Amino acid sequence: MEKTVLSGMRPTGDLHLGNLYGALQNWINLQNEDYERFYFVADWHALTTGFDSSKEIPKNTINMVADWLAFGLDPSKSIIFVQSLVKEHAELFLLLSMITPVGWLERVPSYKDQIAQLGKAKTSNYGFLGYPVLMAADIIIYKAHYVPVGLDQVAHLEFTRELVRHFNHTTQKDVFIEPQPLLTKVPKILGLDGRKMSKSYDNAIYLSDSEEETTKKIRIMFTDPRRKRRTDPGVAEECGVFMLHKIFSSKEKQEEIKQACSKAEIGCVDCKKMLIKNLNEALKPFREKRKELLNKEKTIKEILIEGSKKASQKAKETLEEVRDAIFSTGRLR
């Protein structure tokens, strides 16, 4: 049986380099593997902490999918769809919520962290508390064998696995399979201020940034704090600029920079100039493709509508099994 891979992203704003190399690039690489692939716009998930910005979701969806397509996600190889266009997700979410202990939700690793980060005003809704159940529904309705994640996200997937075991045991039917993490090597990418690149920190280099905007941002990036003066030696491996060199510069150039930095033979300004040149050259084809796609918004919508129809067919089949497992064959049809 062909194995299934599933993943999604929330349309909460423009994608940045961290999103590209932490997730999207892995999706694209998997297109060369023997999997059935489902990638979706998690627009309902975006509402859990951003209901007051809901009117931005349609625009964000188009922009995000344009990024996916511009970098090489191929709708002829992967099913690309919108969560809210496949209503079966909502029904499975409802049914699963009937057997999910509240205590399980309160112990999800990110629950308290997000409350601390976003505040109670954005996280005191039922949707936020129950989002792991919706996430589980998203995955298991396609009977996904694998979910591509970084090592730090494995604990989140374990909730889904636990819920699968609970459902199968409660109904005495093996409807669902336990999805496994498809561990992906996520390169460490720091933002402009030296912290992890994130929209919430306002420290990101976005895929939608122009060449000029990218140049300005790299010029103000934090570097190795040891290098207070041009003559101070540094450790390239601990510098956010060098971490981007490891993606956008050749192996030879990386080694040259590493050695020169450790001996203070190169300054941070010169190092940034090299990165600016290499990064902008690498992103040029993408920027041109993205611009072309955004001028064909109708094409993007057609891809999403067609992908959602295909996803819905699979979801309906699974939901029939779920209803039979819960209500048995005596239910009204």
Score class of each variant (00 low, 15 high):
residue 42 A to G: 01
residue 275 L to A: 08
residue 184 T to F: 01
residue 104 W to Q: 08
residue 278 N to Y: 00
residue 294 L to M: 12
residue 34 D to S: 13
residue 59 K to H: 12
residue 246 K to C: 10
residue 148 P to S: 07
residue 76 S to R: 13
residue 179 P to M: 03
residue 41 V to P: 11
residue 136 A to N: 00
residue 226 R to H: 04
residue 230 R to K: 09
residue 131 Y to S: 05
residue 276 I to P: 10
residue 37 R to M: 13
residue 157 L to W: 00
residue 188 K to R: 07
residue 175 V to A: 06
residue 220 I to E: 14
residue 4 T to G: 02
residue 119 G to N: 11
residue 252 E to Y: 09
residue 197 M to Q: 03
residue 47 L to V: 13
residue 250 S to D: 12
residue 160 T to Q: 00
residue 270 D to A: 09
residue 270 D to Y: 13
residue 77 K to H: 04
residue 223 T to M: 02
residue 86 V to C: 05
residue 22 G to T: 07
residue 125 N to Y: 08
residue 175 V to Y: 02
residue 67 D to P: 11
residue 20 L to H: 13
residue 207 L to D: 07
residue 50 G to F: 04
residue 187 P to T: 06
residue 282 A to K: 15
residue 152 D to A: 00
residue 50 G to E: 10
residue 287 R to Q: 09
residue 133 V to P: 03
residue 320 E to P: 00
residue 47 L to F: 08
residue 255 E to F: 01
residue 278 N to S: 14
residue 46 A to K: 10
residue 206 Y to V: 03
residue 257 I to G: 15
residue 153 Q to M: 01
residue 222 F to R: 13
residue 130 G to N: 15
residue 101 P to C: 06
residue 319 L to V: 02
residue 87 K to A: 13
residue 263 K to W: 01
residue 193 D to F: 13
residue 67 D to C: 15
residue 212 E to K: 08
residue 304 L to E: 05
residue 36 E to W: 02
residue 58 P to V: 15
residue 26 N to M: 06
residue 182 L to H: 10
residue 246 K to P: 04
residue 272 K to P: 04
residue 140 I to L: 01
residue 328 S to I: 12
residue 212 E to H: 08
residue 137 A to V: 05
residue 216 K to M: 05
residue 282 A to N: 11
residue 290 R to S: 08
residue 59 K to T: 12
residue 70 A to E: 06
residue 303 I to Q: 08
residue 80 I to T: 08
residue 297 E to I: 02
residue 70 A to N: 11
residue 28 I to T: 13
residue 67 D to F: 12
residue 134 L to K: 11
residue 213 E to R: 09
residue 99 I to Y: 04
residue 288 E to G: 01
residue 81 F to I: 05
residue 62 I to L: 13
residue 118 L to N: 09
residue 21 Y to P: 09
residue 129 L to E: 12
residue 244 L to W: 02
residue 274 M to I: 14
residue 124 S to T: 06
residue 120 K to W: 14
residue 312 S to M: 11
residue 306 E to V: 04
residue 21 Y to L: 05
residue 185 K to T: 11
residue 104 W to V: 00
residue 130 G to Q: 09
residue 226 R to L: 13
residue 33 E to K: 08
residue 17 L to I: 10
residue 9 M to G: 11
residue 7 S to K: 03
residue 221 M to G: 09
residue 265 E to D: 14
residue 236 A to W: 09
residue 149 V to P: 03
residue 206 Y to K: 14
residue 257 I to L: 15
residue 119 G to C: 01
residue 178 E to S: 11
residue 34 D to E: 10
residue 37 R to G: 09
residue 145 H to G: 11
residue 32 N to C: 01
residue 147 V to T: 01
residue 17 L to Q: 10
residue 76 S to K: 06
residue 324 D to G: 08
residue 155 A to Y: 14
residue 33 E to F: 02
residue 288 E to A: 13
residue 69 L to V: 05
residue 44 W to P: 00
residue 221 M to R: 02
residue 239 C to T: 05
residue 139 I to C: 00
residue 154 V to M: 06
residue 91 E to I: 04
residue 197 M to S: 04
residue 301 K to D: 15
residue 19 N to Q: 10
residue 278 N to F: 02
residue 265 E to N: 15
residue 43 D to N: 12
residue 232 D to K: 03
residue 263 K to E: 15
residue 172 Q to H: 14
residue 205 I to E: 13
residue 133 V to K: 02
residue 188 K to Q: 11
residue 85 L to Y: 14
residue 68 W to F: 12
residue 270 D to Q: 12
residue 246 K to W: 02
residue 322 V to I: 03
residue 245 H to W: 11
residue 4 T to C: 07
residue 246 K to V: 03
residue 293 L to K: 15
residue 196 K to D: 02
residue 286 F to D: 06
